[in-house]
Design a protein around this nucleic acid. Structure first.
Lengths: 214, 214
DNA sequence: TAGATTGTTAATCGATTAACAATC
DNA sequence: TAGATTGTTAATCGATTAACAATC
């Protein structure tokens, strides 16, 4: 199905979701084919880069024609593992936990939210994003009874290490960490550290530059 | 204060918030000095990269000693524009708007939230994250009465272009876009497009790889 | 067929790492 | 002073872009 892919650069991987999104939009507009040139103009990248990126995974196009959008869209989804139906839980039923639980894109991309966990006992039994809220003490049993692939950590950095270690010991495969800390755990577990304020700070930098220079 | 900095690579800028965070933590632990070697071990990068990065902005260290943490922390904050006290508004009082309004890190980093706007009239007069919620129709007047630097867009992609254009016409300096679309506007306005699900997809890719290969 | 566009190799560009003289 | 560590130049590595033969 796909080409041998031992070491695809991480920069290439990070571009795949963006390709996927643009292709999905084109598909929604009823388009059927696209050339690397056309796509590159839409996305503001070079056609060469698109062809180079895609060829890490295989030849999805056809000379003289370009790429079949539906086919390419599907293949990139496959590469990203979106058709595996990975399951998620959210740790932390605060504002961010709520926002992430209700984020429709995750479901649209094939991820299935199984439950939300919080240390506040008062929240137990309530519903967030269409799923049950459980007390943290139920985590062990829940993880044994359900196949949970990814845990989304929407809690403060205090105590995050303990929660992460527990999840790892219970067999979690991926951690998506929104706390303001870098999780440093066993490399067999995939970890994405998201620092929201980092984006705001680089924005701040650019505004400052815009005001100083031009 | 700082060195001439006409073209600092964006990859360097993006690393500054991380340096800032680690230095802040060290400061909180009462440390006063750090060498590039020590910091590199903590952060999992090379000492050479740290020295190279910092020297885009100036020589903050001292041979034989290293860097004074408090001084370097302050200087990086200065470079990032954190001491300017940039003001923000949030567009969209949904789950994500709530989460961002209550995100304490933004305040900690010197940003000041002035108001939240939503198209739902029922929300007007309520409070989110300590500030008033206004109806979208009040945006024009608000922007004229207040100096607003950054707008945080926590609304769906439908209609985002109109809102963004209006904000630009009202003099916004930066847009932090959480909708699932890439905003493409006048380059004099700084834009950060955040696609939350992109991170989840790269996580999905890595989990899939971990399961296939090792 | 002629034109279009891929897949892929080669050339260029930029970023990271290594090395070391300067110096605190 | 001697040891440590910077700032900076040079070497290496990797990623992007250009070019073009292959071919639909």
């Amino acid at each position: 199905m796909e080409k041998e892919r031992k070491d695809v650069p991480i920069v290439v991987i990070k571009r795949l979701p963006r390709y996927y999104r643009y292709l999905g939009e084109m598909l929604g507009q009823g388009m059927t084919r696209v050339s690397s040139k056309h796509l590159s103009e839409k996305m503001g990248v070079t056609a060469s880069q698109i062809r180079q990126d895609l060829n890490f995974f295989g030849g999805f196009g056809q000379q003289g024609y370009g790429y079949n959008i539906e086919y390419l869209y599907h293949e990139i989804g496959e590469i990203l593992g979106l058709h595996k139906g990975y399951t998620t839980i959210i740790i932390g039923a605060g504002n961010l936990g709520h926002a992430l639980a209700n984020h429709s894109n995750f479901k649209k991309r094939g991820f299935r939210l199984l439950g939300v966990f919080d240390k506040n006992e008062m929240l137990e039994g309530s519903t967030v994003g269409g799923v049950q809220v459980y007390h943290m003490s139920k985590l062990d049993k829940f993880m044994r009874d359900n196949e949970v692939d990814i845990a989304i950590l929407a809690i403060p950095k205090y105590g995050i290490k303990e929660v992460a270690d527990k999840l790892v010991s219970l067999g979690i495969k991926g951690l998506w960490n929104f706390s303001y800390s870098d999780l440093d755990i066993d490399p067999s577990v995939a970890v994405e550290n998201v620092h929201l304020s980092d984006g705001l700070m680089t924005l701040s930098y650019r505004i400052t530059q815009n005001q100083t220079q031009p």
